[in-house]
Write a protein that binds this DNA or RNA. Sequence first.
DNA 1: GACCAGGCACATC
DNA 2: GATGTGCATGGT
Length: 220
Amino acid sequence: MTAGGDQLMAFYETLLAHYGRQNWWPGDSPFEVMVGAVLTQNTNWLNVEKAITNLKAADKLSAWAIDALDHEELAQLIRPAGYFNIKARRLKNLITWLCQNYDGSIEALADLSVPRLREELLSVNGIGRETADSIILYALEKPTFVVDTYTYRVLCRHGCIDPESDYEQTKDFCESHLLQDVALYNEFHALIVQVGKNHCKPRPKCTDCPLVCYEHTLDL
DNA sequence: GACCAGGCACATC
DNA sequence: GATGTGCATGGT
């Protein structure tokens, strides 16, 4: 275990002691978690909940029900989550993939390996790395570390990762310094989001400032 | 009224 | 390959 690894576990212990268990991901079923993963892209979770409530109220929170909806109907139901046109398309792409390849059953994905799942999910237009990893970890409960803006920002500001690190490098750093454990990955990501929301706000770039602060020149 | 939120794909250089 | 931009609602 390297110093970086020790530091990472120390962060985890500190955050867990301070915030307690986060009980992620909020959702009544793996399918709901998967839908939420798409709807929460660059969006406050409160708005996602409204959209999910709409889907439930309309009795459309299932693969085949969403598959049967046309674009306009789906877009209106998920409207509160923002970006509703593009998210309706992305959700449709994901559901179509699930229906065509796995009979609309998220349970059918359980037998696939994490690398295979990742590869397949990433092949769906609209499913990027974070969304794919969120689905694998939180809906399918398989070990893959979810990296998001907060993860990058928090680890960057604490000098754990190079500011030039991309998604995969950040993910590799976390996974290589932590035991491969679904519960740990689950809780850690949720805790990072919590501390990020409260203490790691984005900072503006100030490239023209004569007192150039390196951190401020980065889009953290 | 400005800023931000649990990203992603695509156009352009 | 890096950088910029569109997508949109709702809370603070």
